[in-house]
Design a protein around this nucleic acid. Structure first.
Lengths: 327, 327
DNA sequence: ATGAAAGCGCTAACAG
DNA sequence: CTGTTAGCGCTTTCAT
């Protein structure tokens, strides 16, 4: 077993109180006492027991980041930034992966992590606003990503409607008129997808173009393969001159389908993605995309966690359209 | 404050012992007592305090996964699988990101996580075998990835020499003779890179070809930009007819450089990567690569963690060469 | 400036 | 089958 405070105390010939003072950098310890105690600490290889501390303080310094899948590039990049920023603030991040499974999300939401974490950053996939409202767990919660409905929870997201409008406007400005989208979600749950679709339609209409139902392609998940599949289907009915994909992964899948069909990007079909993942910067051609400020998202979410108690807010993080070679 | 065991006991009119029995699914509880207690638990919204449990059991159910960067696709995919498999085994994974920083790695190695975790899965970047040997912390440790030197630590890796030989052999078999590599590490620390280089050279020599120093390109990190840069340099001296990249990210960067120079893959230059990340499956053309069995790596590492105490072993996970369109 | 001791919430040995 | 209680390691009030 590891050395305890008491072992150090005995070894140094002082009380536990004094050792505790030294460990926690307390002001009033006689210099020589401090030296002696420190020597004992080193010699015995003492390390404070986090569990005992937690029990005492009822604070762990841990926060949970709940995402559908950590190896989806967007979440990986978001997680990397969250971990980094949390580290700066003296927090440790514990990652939960739900695989988009409703039951796992529900469990996590309702305190499966018990007193283990001081807060939860939650990126919902399957869970609905009603489930959030029904939450009884008291651990501070911040939602990552779009979320509508009256759930009494903080959430941070970019302005998806505005972002989608910019993407669409950019396509229109480069002379495209048959603009399709890939990424509509069959279930109504994904608020981000819904808002991106709304933004796309709004911009088309503002330009005097009527949305064409056949050009709004649904996908089950947001992987490359879904984008690939959706693009093939799109090509089977009509060849659009541009596609706005609701994630970069979908866009990369779509580009692969176009390449296989011998279509050129951007000459035959222009592509805009969403998320600004690193793959898109190195794809050939490089992907035009909406870039959410992931550092800001992570940072604002952590702020919101720390500020809990105040009435829930809807926090908007910045984004930017990055024009590269696919448009 | 949350309800405690004692509150539930009073509410249900039983002792804490009984409540504890119910919570932990103990055998001998009278059915009606159980029902009554369960009702109180639900009513009060009782959740066991993990810190107290941990203090009692000196076991947290947490393990740390330490990686240089979580948003590097290989590590993201490995993390996703580790989290998933750990979940199955009732473990929670906490992710530490070192950014390849020596000091952060050293800290983590020497027990910065204190009693917080039951074990550490460590993917070293900057830290050397000597640092590992000097470790005093007692938390079980398993190294992920190649590691040589006599450090008394379990580690799981694939057979990098054999894998590199297969990759090189494949290139030779398709008629390539001017085969370059990208991914040599200037510092001697990265054992994986060293072994891949060794395998490449061995296979060339076995084929009767002498290694050419200029064709062995170093990189600082393993990002796409490094591969891109290295490929450009390679093209400035001589155009190889094949490049074996030590990671898929390097390969994707290299492919971008080739595209910009108007060279065709695989007609002008064949490419083999390493890691089998998802991007490579959807790049155009799709990337031939060495695929380490990441599920096995995660699974074997978790096994090794559980089996600690036995003499340290060097565990070999399977790998496979996946031939796609770049060769 | 240091010591003694209570108590954080839980588990399990002991007693019944 | 259930109750009582010591103690996991630490922080901190109270006392000196």
């Amino acid at each position: 077993m590891n050395a305890r405070l008491r072992d150090v105390a005995e070894h140094a010939g002082v009380s536990v109180r004094t050792v505790s003072n030294v460990v926690n950098g307390f002001r009033y310890v006689a210099p020589d006492t401090r030296t002696r105690v420190q020597a004992s600490i080193d010699e015995l290889g003492y390390r404070p027991n986090l569990a005992a501390r937690t029990l005492r303080h009822s604070r762990t310094g841990l926060i949970a980041l709940v995402v559908p899948e950590i190896d989806s590039p967007y979440f990986a990049e978001l997680a990397a930034r969250t971990v980094r920023i949390a580290q700066h603030r003296g927090l440790t991040v514990l990652i939960d992966q739900t695989d988009g499974d409703f039951e796992r999300e529900r469990l996590l939401l309702h305190g499966k992590r018990g007193q283990l974490v001081d807060g939860v950053l939650f990126s919902p996939w399957a869970v609905a606003p009603a489930d959030l409202a029904a939450r009884t767990d008291t651990v501070p919660l911040v939602l990552l990503g779009e979320h509508d409905g009256p759930a009494p929870v903080d959430h941070v997201a970019i302005d998806n409607v505005a972002a989608a409008r910019e993407a669409t406007r950019h396509l229109l400005a480069t002379g495209r008129r048959r603009i399709a989208v890939i990424g509509v979600q069959p279930r109504t749950l994904n608020a981000s997808a819904r808002q991106r679709l709304a933004g796309y339609r709004q911009e088309l209409e503002a330009f005097g173009l009527a949305p064409v139902v056949d050009r709004e392609r649904p996908v089950r998940r947001l992987h490359r393969s879904d984008g690939y599949q959706a693009m093939l289907e799109l090509l089977d009915s009509e060849t659009p001159d541009a596609v706005f994909c609701f994630t970069d992964q979908l866009a990369l899948g779509a580009m692969r389908a176009l390449a296989e069909r011998g279509l050129s990007v951007p000459d035959d079909v222009a592509i805009v993605g969403f998320d600004d993942i690193e793959d898109g910067r190195y794809s050939v051609p490089a992907l035009t995309t909406v870039s959410p400020d992931k550092d800001q998202i992570a940072s604002l979410a952590l702020d919101a966690l720390a500020a809990q108690g105040k009435p829930p807010r809807s926090i908007i993080a910045p984004h930017e359209l990055i024009v590269r070679a696919t448009t």
